[in-house]
Nucleic acid binder design. Structure first.
Length: 249
DNA sequence: TAGGCCATCTGGTCCT
DNA sequence: AGGACCAGATGGCCTA
């Protein structure tokens, strides 16, 4: 391969890496948006990606069942649907969110309380639930305002709209004047978006990789010549792979 | 220390 | 050719 060709390939690779990073950041942003409308909030335990997706799926199912009238949002069935297939820690989180003692906020970690008290609501602000057989340390809060929103939809302005009218793009979404997060909340003084836990966002901050910095040749230069910095610099992050690959086109 | 989770890099595939 | 998307590989960080 000619030098110029290697340069072109490397430039493409750098651009592709940047695009991929950007794409993944977009994906993570979307996931974060999803987290923000989940009914469970915890400052100390952030839902993982996979658990966020599982909980979202369960949440949709549970709300669907509630909308169909079969299941009360305060029922055990609602809770069980919510926790279906979740990991034990997440189940505990959800259970903890739903579990509240006689005093508002009782049993909650101080740091998990949002520092505000829910206004009197038909649900008492928070939903009480005792999870059977679970240690259920209360890790977070369950925002019953989300459920109230559901009730508003059932009996209110949105009742006559099919779910299809509210699409993911935001076009046709029901009116919502509040802050972007959590969009489902109808209570203005409830559940400010949780502070990131000490470990979130992850400590990974992008800095140009050794490849992007040109400290070593990308392995995808194919008929790679292990010369220059690459030979002397074996990055712990990305050791060379497939060095026997041969460029074809 | 093992396991979980994550960000990033990379090569492959498909599409425009 | 180049971009989007995907999945595998890898190493870092954190927690139990």
């Amino acid at each position: 391969m000619t030098k110029a060709r290697q340069e072109r390939f490397r430039a493409r690779r750098i651009k592709a890496n940047a695009r991929e990073r950007s794409r993944m950041h977009g994906l993570n942003d979307a996931l974060e948006n999803l987290r923000s409308i989940m009914p469970c909030h915890s400052k100390t335990q952030k839902l993982s990606k996979i658990e966020t997706l599982r909980l979202a799926r369960n949440y949709i199912c549970a709300l669907s069942e509630a909308l169909e009238g079969g299941v009360s949002t305060e029922s055990r069935a609602f809770m069980e649907t919510l926790c279906k297939g979740l990991s034990q820690p997440t189940t505990n989180l959800v259970a903890g969110c739903l579990q509240l003692g006689p005093a508002p906020g009782a049993g909650m970690r101080p740091e998990d309380r949002h520092g505000v008290r829910a206004p009197p609501t038909p649900l008492g602000g928070m939903v009480s639930y005792s999870s059977p057989g679970l240690p259920s340390p209360p890790y977070g809060t369950f925002d019953s305002a989300h459920l109230l929103h559901l009730r508003a939809m059932k009996g209110g302005a949105y009742e006559n709209h099919s779910p299809h009218e509210y699409n993911a793009s935001g076009v046709g979404t029901p009116p919502y004047d509040g802050p972007p997060t959590p969009p489902l909340s109808i209570s203005s003084n409830l559940v400010p978006k949780q502070e990131p836990s000490p470990h979130y966002p992850p400590t990974h901050h992008y800095s140009p990789s050794p490849v992007d910095q040109g400290l070593y040749q990308t392995q995808s230069s194919y008929d790679v010549h292990l010369e220059g910095p690459y030979d002397s610099y074996h990055p712990p992050h990305m050791p060379p792979r497939h060095l026997t690959s041969v460029y074809r086109d």
